[in-house]
Protein backbone atom coordinates (compact mmCIF):
# COMPACT_ATOMS: atom_id res chain seq x y z
CA UNK A 1 0.00 0.00 0.00
CA UNK A 2 1.31 3.38 -0.90
CA UNK A 3 1.20 6.31 1.45
CA UNK A 4 1.97 9.99 1.16
CA UNK A 5 5.61 10.97 1.80
CA UNK A 6 6.61 14.46 3.01
CA UNK A 7 8.46 16.67 0.56
CA UNK A 8 11.87 16.54 2.31
CA UNK A 9 11.85 12.79 2.46
CA UNK A 10 10.82 12.60 -1.18
CA UNK A 11 13.69 14.82 -2.25
CA UNK A 12 16.19 12.22 -0.98
CA UNK A 13 14.80 9.37 -3.04
CA UNK A 14 16.33 8.02 -6.26
CA UNK A 15 13.15 8.69 -8.17
CA UNK A 16 13.27 12.41 -7.43
CA UNK A 17 16.94 12.62 -8.53
CA UNK A 18 16.19 10.72 -11.67
CA UNK A 19 13.25 12.96 -12.44
CA UNK A 20 15.38 16.07 -11.89
CA UNK A 21 18.02 14.67 -14.21
CA UNK A 22 15.41 13.82 -16.82
CA UNK A 23 13.84 17.26 -16.76
CA UNK A 24 17.28 18.83 -17.01
CA UNK A 25 17.20 21.05 -13.91
CA UNK A 26 20.12 19.41 -12.08
CA UNK A 27 22.62 16.67 -12.73
CA UNK A 28 22.67 14.32 -9.73
CA UNK A 29 26.06 12.79 -10.61
CA UNK A 30 27.98 16.06 -10.86
CA UNK A 31 27.31 17.76 -7.60
CA UNK A 32 25.36 21.00 -7.85
CA UNK A 33 26.13 21.75 -11.46
CA UNK A 34 23.28 23.66 -13.06
CA UNK A 35 22.36 22.57 -16.55
CA UNK A 36 21.09 24.80 -19.31
CA UNK A 37 17.71 24.13 -20.73
CA UNK A 38 17.74 23.30 -24.40
CA UNK A 39 16.28 25.70 -26.92
CA UNK A 40 13.95 24.73 -29.66
CA UNK A 41 15.80 24.22 -32.93
CA UNK A 42 14.94 26.85 -35.48
CA UNK A 43 15.91 27.08 -39.10
CA UNK A 44 16.45 30.36 -40.84
CA UNK A 45 14.56 31.38 -43.95
CA UNK A 46 17.76 31.58 -45.99
CA UNK A 47 18.85 28.00 -45.25
CA UNK A 48 15.45 26.65 -46.20
CA UNK A 49 15.64 28.55 -49.48
CA UNK A 50 19.16 27.24 -50.13
CA UNK A 51 18.12 23.67 -49.46
CA UNK A 52 15.16 23.95 -51.82
CA UNK A 53 17.38 25.43 -54.53
CA UNK A 54 19.91 22.65 -54.11
CA UNK A 55 17.24 20.01 -54.33
CA UNK A 56 15.88 21.62 -57.50
CA UNK A 57 19.38 21.77 -58.98
CA UNK A 58 19.99 18.08 -58.29
CA UNK A 59 16.61 17.21 -59.74
CA UNK A 60 17.31 19.25 -62.87
CA UNK A 61 20.73 17.68 -63.32
CA UNK A 62 19.43 14.13 -62.90
CA UNK A 63 16.48 14.55 -65.22
CA UNK A 64 18.36 16.57 -67.82
CA UNK A 65 17.16 14.81 -70.95
CA UNK A 66 19.70 16.50 -73.20
CA UNK A 67 22.78 15.10 -71.43
CA UNK A 68 21.68 12.14 -69.36
CA UNK A 69 21.74 9.28 -71.84
CA UNK A 70 20.56 6.66 -69.37
CA UNK A 71 17.54 8.75 -68.48
CA UNK A 72 16.71 9.29 -72.15
CA UNK A 73 16.97 5.57 -72.85
CA UNK A 74 14.76 4.77 -69.89
CA UNK A 75 12.20 7.34 -70.98
CA UNK A 76 12.10 5.94 -74.51
CA UNK A 77 11.64 2.37 -73.26
CA UNK A 78 9.00 3.53 -70.79
CA UNK A 79 6.89 5.21 -73.48
CA UNK A 80 7.29 2.28 -75.88
CA UNK A 81 6.30 -0.29 -73.23
CA UNK A 82 3.32 1.81 -72.20
CA UNK A 83 2.04 2.03 -75.78
CA UNK A 84 2.62 -1.69 -76.38
CA UNK A 85 0.85 -2.57 -73.15
CA UNK A 86 -2.17 -0.41 -74.03
CA UNK A 87 -2.45 -2.00 -77.46
CA UNK A 88 -2.07 -5.48 -76.01
CA UNK A 89 -4.83 -4.77 -73.51
CA UNK A 90 -7.02 -3.38 -76.30
CA UNK A 91 -6.50 -6.48 -78.44
CA UNK A 92 -7.19 -8.87 -75.56
CA UNK A 93 -10.38 -7.04 -74.58
CA UNK A 94 -11.63 -6.80 -78.17
CA UNK A 95 -10.89 -10.49 -78.72
CA UNK A 96 -12.83 -11.41 -75.58
CA UNK A 97 -15.76 -9.21 -76.50
CA UNK A 98 -15.92 -10.60 -80.03
CA UNK A 99 -16.17 -14.11 -78.58
CA UNK A 100 -19.15 -13.26 -76.38
CA UNK A 101 -22.55 -14.53 -77.53
CA UNK A 102 -24.71 -11.80 -79.13
CA UNK A 103 -27.38 -10.03 -77.10
CA UNK A 104 -30.55 -12.05 -76.75
CA UNK A 105 -29.16 -15.33 -77.98
CA UNK A 106 -30.57 -18.33 -76.11
CA UNK A 107 -27.13 -19.91 -75.54
CA UNK A 108 -26.05 -16.99 -73.39
CA UNK A 109 -24.83 -18.02 -69.97
CA UNK A 110 -27.23 -15.70 -68.14
CA UNK A 111 -30.25 -17.31 -69.77
CA UNK A 112 -30.51 -20.16 -67.31
CA UNK A 113 -33.33 -21.28 -65.05
CA UNK A 114 -33.03 -18.27 -62.68
CA UNK A 115 -34.32 -15.46 -64.95
CA UNK A 116 -36.75 -17.94 -66.46
CA UNK A 117 -38.32 -18.48 -63.06
CA UNK A 118 -38.27 -14.73 -62.32
CA UNK A 119 -40.11 -13.96 -65.54
CA UNK A 120 -42.58 -16.82 -65.46
CA UNK A 121 -43.44 -17.06 -61.78
CA UNK A 122 -42.37 -13.63 -60.49
CA UNK A 123 -45.80 -12.06 -60.60
CA UNK A 124 -47.42 -15.09 -59.04
CA UNK A 125 -44.91 -15.53 -56.22
CA UNK A 126 -44.17 -11.92 -55.27
CA UNK A 127 -47.34 -10.17 -56.41
CA UNK A 128 -45.36 -7.24 -57.83
CA UNK A 129 -46.17 -6.04 -61.34
CA UNK A 130 -42.72 -4.45 -61.56
CA UNK A 131 -40.58 -7.57 -61.73
CA UNK A 132 -37.37 -5.72 -60.90
CA UNK A 133 -38.81 -4.63 -57.56
CA UNK A 134 -40.04 -8.17 -57.01
CA UNK A 135 -36.50 -9.39 -57.56
CA UNK A 136 -34.61 -6.90 -55.40
CA UNK A 137 -37.09 -6.84 -52.54
CA UNK A 138 -38.34 -10.42 -52.51
CA UNK A 139 -35.98 -12.95 -54.06
CA UNK A 140 -32.85 -10.96 -53.24
CA UNK A 141 -34.07 -8.95 -50.28
CA UNK A 142 -30.98 -9.58 -48.16
CA UNK A 143 -28.87 -7.96 -50.86
CA UNK A 144 -31.00 -4.82 -50.62
CA UNK A 145 -30.78 -5.03 -46.85
CA UNK A 146 -27.00 -5.00 -47.15
CA UNK A 147 -27.19 -1.96 -49.42
CA UNK A 148 -29.33 -0.08 -46.88
CA UNK A 149 -26.82 -1.02 -44.18
CA UNK A 150 -23.97 0.23 -46.36
CA UNK A 151 -25.75 3.58 -46.58
CA UNK A 152 -26.21 3.59 -42.81
CA UNK A 153 -22.54 2.75 -42.20
CA UNK A 154 -21.46 5.47 -44.63
CA UNK A 155 -23.55 7.98 -42.69
CA UNK A 156 -22.06 6.77 -39.41
CA UNK A 157 -18.56 7.24 -40.84
CA UNK A 158 -19.38 10.75 -42.04
CA UNK A 159 -20.85 11.53 -38.62
CA UNK A 160 -17.69 10.29 -36.90
CA UNK A 161 -15.42 12.31 -39.18
CA UNK A 162 -17.37 15.54 -39.60
CA UNK A 163 -19.69 15.88 -36.62
CA UNK A 164 -18.96 19.17 -34.96
CA UNK A 165 -19.39 19.07 -31.19
CA UNK A 166 -17.39 21.92 -29.69
CA UNK A 167 -19.36 25.11 -29.58
CA UNK A 168 -17.04 27.66 -27.99
CA UNK A 169 -16.91 31.27 -29.11
CA UNK A 170 -13.88 30.94 -31.38
CA UNK A 171 -15.38 28.01 -33.23
CA UNK A 172 -18.65 29.86 -33.70
CA UNK A 173 -16.85 32.90 -35.06
CA UNK A 174 -14.89 30.76 -37.50
CA UNK A 175 -18.10 29.09 -38.61
CA UNK A 176 -19.80 32.43 -39.23
CA UNK A 177 -16.79 33.69 -41.13
CA UNK A 178 -16.75 30.59 -43.27
CA UNK A 179 -20.26 31.24 -44.50
CA UNK A 180 -20.09 35.02 -44.77
CA UNK A 181 -20.42 34.90 -48.52
CA UNK A 182 -23.32 32.50 -48.65
CA UNK A 183 -26.54 34.25 -49.65
CA UNK A 184 -28.89 33.73 -46.75
CA UNK A 185 -32.63 34.35 -46.57
CA UNK A 186 -33.00 34.92 -50.28
CA UNK A 187 -36.63 35.88 -50.92
CA UNK A 188 -36.77 34.53 -54.46
CA UNK A 189 -35.40 31.17 -53.41
CA UNK A 190 -37.78 31.02 -50.47
CA UNK A 191 -40.84 31.64 -52.62
CA UNK A 192 -39.63 29.05 -55.13
CA UNK A 193 -38.99 26.56 -52.34
CA UNK A 194 -42.46 27.11 -50.87
CA UNK A 195 -43.91 26.03 -54.19
CA UNK A 196 -41.48 23.25 -55.04
CA UNK A 197 -40.63 21.47 -51.78
CA UNK A 198 -44.12 20.01 -51.15
CA UNK A 199 -44.37 18.91 -54.79
CA UNK A 200 -40.94 17.27 -54.73
CA UNK A 201 -41.60 15.44 -51.47
CA UNK A 202 -45.06 14.33 -52.68
CA UNK A 203 -43.51 13.03 -55.88
CA UNK A 204 -40.92 11.13 -53.86
CA UNK A 205 -43.65 9.54 -51.75
CA UNK A 206 -45.51 8.64 -54.94
CA UNK A 207 -42.42 6.96 -56.37
CA UNK A 208 -41.86 4.97 -53.17
CA UNK A 209 -45.49 3.87 -52.79
CA UNK A 210 -45.74 2.83 -56.46
CA UNK A 211 -42.45 0.95 -56.40
CA UNK A 212 -44.09 -2.43 -56.99
CA UNK A 213 -46.45 -1.18 -59.73
CA UNK A 214 -44.43 1.22 -61.87
CA UNK A 215 -40.72 1.95 -62.26
CA UNK A 216 -39.27 3.42 -59.10
CA UNK A 217 -38.89 2.18 -55.58
CA UNK A 218 -37.17 2.93 -52.33
CA UNK A 219 -33.81 4.13 -53.60
CA UNK A 220 -35.05 6.56 -56.26
CA UNK A 221 -37.94 7.85 -54.17
CA UNK A 222 -35.71 8.31 -51.15
CA UNK A 223 -33.23 10.27 -53.26
CA UNK A 224 -36.06 12.56 -54.45
CA UNK A 225 -37.25 13.17 -50.88
CA UNK A 226 -33.67 13.87 -49.79
CA UNK A 227 -33.33 16.42 -52.60
CA UNK A 228 -36.52 18.14 -51.40
CA UNK A 229 -35.15 18.30 -47.85
CA UNK A 230 -31.85 19.75 -49.10
CA UNK A 231 -33.76 22.42 -51.06
CA UNK A 232 -35.72 23.25 -47.92
CA UNK A 233 -32.50 23.63 -45.91
CA UNK A 234 -30.79 25.84 -48.47
CA UNK A 235 -33.85 28.09 -48.67
CA UNK A 236 -34.90 28.41 -45.04
CA UNK A 237 -31.76 27.51 -43.10
CA UNK A 238 -31.07 24.96 -40.42
CA UNK A 239 -33.20 26.71 -37.79
CA UNK A 240 -36.40 25.87 -39.66
CA UNK A 241 -35.34 22.34 -40.50
CA UNK A 242 -34.35 21.55 -36.92
CA UNK A 243 -38.02 21.74 -35.99
CA UNK A 244 -38.72 18.43 -37.70
CA UNK A 245 -35.37 16.83 -38.44
CA UNK A 246 -32.62 16.52 -35.86
CA UNK A 247 -29.99 13.95 -35.04
CA UNK A 248 -32.49 12.16 -32.81
CA UNK A 249 -34.99 11.90 -35.67
CA UNK A 250 -32.29 10.44 -37.87
CA UNK A 251 -31.34 7.86 -35.27
CA UNK A 252 -34.94 6.80 -34.62
CA UNK A 253 -35.90 6.59 -38.31
CA UNK A 254 -32.83 4.62 -39.33
CA UNK A 255 -33.02 2.26 -36.37
CA UNK A 256 -36.73 1.54 -36.80
CA UNK A 257 -36.52 1.13 -40.58
CA UNK A 258 -33.50 -1.17 -40.57
CA UNK A 259 -34.77 -3.27 -37.66
CA UNK A 260 -38.18 -3.66 -39.24
CA UNK A 261 -36.59 -4.64 -42.54
CA UNK A 262 -34.36 -7.21 -40.84
CA UNK A 263 -37.12 -8.76 -38.74
CA UNK A 264 -39.75 -8.85 -41.48
CA UNK A 265 -37.46 -10.34 -44.07
CA UNK A 266 -35.96 -12.82 -41.61
CA UNK A 267 -39.47 -14.02 -40.82
CA UNK A 268 -40.34 -14.31 -44.48
CA UNK A 269 -37.15 -16.20 -45.33
CA UNK A 270 -37.50 -18.47 -42.30
CA UNK A 271 -41.02 -19.51 -43.22
CA UNK A 272 -40.11 -19.80 -46.88
CA UNK A 273 -37.10 -22.03 -46.23
CA UNK A 274 -39.06 -24.36 -43.93
CA UNK A 275 -42.10 -24.55 -46.23
CA UNK A 276 -44.35 -22.93 -43.65
CA UNK A 277 -47.18 -20.60 -44.48
CA UNK A 278 -46.12 -16.98 -43.89
CA UNK A 279 -49.69 -15.53 -43.53
CA UNK A 280 -48.67 -12.42 -45.47
CA UNK A 281 -51.41 -11.71 -48.04
CA UNK A 282 -50.17 -11.00 -51.55
CA UNK A 283 -53.32 -9.17 -52.66
CA UNK A 284 -54.34 -8.48 -56.21
CA UNK A 285 -51.42 -7.51 -58.47
CA UNK A 286 -51.59 -3.87 -59.55
CA UNK A 287 -53.27 -2.49 -56.42
CA UNK A 288 -51.36 -0.18 -54.09
CA UNK A 289 -51.83 -2.45 -51.07
CA UNK A 290 -50.55 -5.64 -52.62
CA UNK A 291 -47.49 -7.84 -53.05
CA UNK A 292 -47.00 -8.64 -49.38
CA UNK A 293 -43.85 -7.26 -47.77
CA UNK A 294 -42.58 -5.30 -50.76
CA UNK A 295 -44.44 -2.07 -49.97
CA UNK A 296 -43.30 -1.76 -46.31
CA UNK A 297 -39.77 -2.72 -47.27
CA UNK A 298 -39.78 -0.06 -50.00
CA UNK A 299 -40.89 2.51 -47.43
CA UNK A 300 -38.06 1.44 -45.07
CA UNK A 301 -35.43 1.71 -47.80
CA UNK A 302 -36.82 5.08 -48.92
CA UNK A 303 -36.66 6.49 -45.38
CA UNK A 304 -33.08 5.33 -44.91
CA UNK A 305 -31.98 6.78 -48.26
CA UNK A 306 -33.70 10.14 -47.66
CA UNK A 307 -32.17 10.48 -44.19
CA UNK A 308 -28.75 9.50 -45.53
CA UNK A 309 -28.83 12.11 -48.28
CA UNK A 310 -29.94 14.86 -45.94
CA UNK A 311 -27.41 13.89 -43.28
CA UNK A 312 -24.57 13.90 -45.80
CA UNK A 313 -25.54 17.39 -46.92
CA UNK A 314 -25.87 18.68 -43.36
CA UNK A 315 -22.55 17.17 -42.30
CA UNK A 316 -20.60 18.51 -45.23
CA UNK A 317 -22.12 21.95 -44.98
CA UNK A 318 -22.34 22.66 -41.28
CA UNK A 319 -21.10 19.63 -39.38
CA UNK A 320 -24.31 19.51 -37.38
CA UNK A 321 -28.01 19.05 -37.95
Amino acid sequence: MSKLVPQEKYEKTKAFHFWRWLSGTKDPYLDHVEMKEQKEWKEEEQTIQDRMNERQMIHDAVYDMGRNKKQRLFHGIYVAVAIIFCFLLLVILLYTVSNLPPTGSPEKAVNNEVPERYIEKGLQETGAVNIVTGMILDYRAFDTFGESNVLFIATVTVLILLHYTKKDAAAKKEEANDRAFEPKNDTILQVCATILVPIIILFGIYVILNGHISPGGGFSGGAIIGAGLILHVSAFGFVKTEKFFTEKTYKIICFVALTFYCLAKSYSFFTGANHLESHIPLGTPGAILSSGLILPLNICVGLVVACTMYTFYAMFRKGDF
Binding site: F181, E182, P183, D186, I188, L189, C192, I195, L196, I199
Partner: peptide
Protein backbone atom coordinates in the same frame (compact mmCIF):
# COMPACT_ATOMS: atom_id res chain seq x y z
CA UNK B 1 -43.40 24.22 -65.24
CA UNK B 2 -40.82 22.60 -62.97
CA UNK B 3 -37.98 23.74 -65.18
CA UNK B 4 -39.34 27.25 -65.53
CA UNK B 5 -39.68 27.59 -61.76
CA UNK B 6 -36.41 25.95 -60.77
CA UNK B 7 -33.92 27.02 -63.45
CA UNK B 8 -34.18 30.85 -63.18
CA UNK B 9 -33.97 30.64 -59.40
CA UNK B 10 -30.90 28.46 -59.70
CA UNK B 11 -29.26 30.97 -62.05
CA UNK B 12 -30.22 33.78 -59.69
CA UNK B 13 -28.56 32.06 -56.72
CA UNK B 14 -25.40 31.35 -58.71
CA UNK B 15 -25.13 34.93 -59.93
CA UNK B 16 -25.72 36.28 -56.43
CA UNK B 17 -22.94 34.07 -55.10
CA UNK B 18 -20.66 35.24 -57.90
CA UNK B 19 -21.40 38.91 -57.18
CA UNK B 20 -20.83 38.51 -53.46
CA UNK B 21 -17.64 36.47 -53.72
Amino acid sequence: MFFWIASPVCSHMLSKLEVTT
